[in-house]
């Protein structure tokens, strides 16, 4: 339990979370303002920001994947836990360990796959068709998103494992 506590108190953990929050706010505001600017430009200045949607989509991807990894931290991903509610506490703790293990394993696997995706993009350098912005700029959000999800879910897995083990000890005692 100390291990988890010290991770959560560490500067690294806090600064990652702080950074994510800043990114979430900035990308959200950016997307809103640019979309509004486009309307204003069209009607007031009768002009068009060519390819602006390519920039908006980059911001959107960072918003999506920073948001979804922050969602793993907040444990706010949608779930339908019907069976856990029917279980006794100890069985529920065990199931929670298994669920967190599966989530961590999947996150790590997808992180590895995302590395492959970004590496391909850096090698071949595909670009957007309008402004010719390299695709890896938006695609790396997927990689970072999965990497952060892996980090948070591993910590939660260990935390739940401790809970389960300590429940076992209490019962023996």
């Amino acid at each position: 339990m100390n291990l988890i506590g010290s991770i959560k108190r560490s500067l690294f953990w806090k600064s990652i979370l702080g950074l994510q929050r800043i990114l979430l706010v900035l990308t959200s505001l950016f997307v809103v303002l640019i979309m509004c600017a486009e309307v204003v430009l069209r009607y007031v200045f009768k002009s068009d920001l060519f390819g602006i949607e390519e920039i908006v989509v980059i911001a959107a991807f960072w918003l999506y994947f920073m948001g979804s990894s922050y969602g793993v931290f907040e444990k706010s991903h949608v779930k339908a836990d019907i069976i856990p509610q029917m279980l006794r506490p100890r069985a529920r703790a065990l199931l929670s360990v298994l669920v967190n293990f599966t989530v961590s394993a999947l996150c790590i696997l997808f992180t590895v796959w995302a590395v492959g995706m970004v590496r391909y993009c850096i090698t071949w350098m595909p670009r957007t068709t309008g402004l010719r912005i390299p695709i890896y700029i938006s695609q790396s959000s997927v990689l970072l998103g999965y990497a952060l999800m892996s980090m948070y879910s591993i910590v939660y897995f260990i935390e739940d494992l401790f809970v389960f083990v300590s429940m076992g000890r209490e019962r023996e005692a």
Partner: peptide, 20 residues
């Protein structure tokens, strides 16, 4: 216009304003 420079330039040189 589609987000392709060729399309946009052509449309504008014909004399149209363009929107993405």
């Amino acid at each position: 216009v589609a987000p392709l420079a060729v399309y946009k330039e052509t449309a504008e040189d014909l004399g149209f304003r363009t929107a993405s």
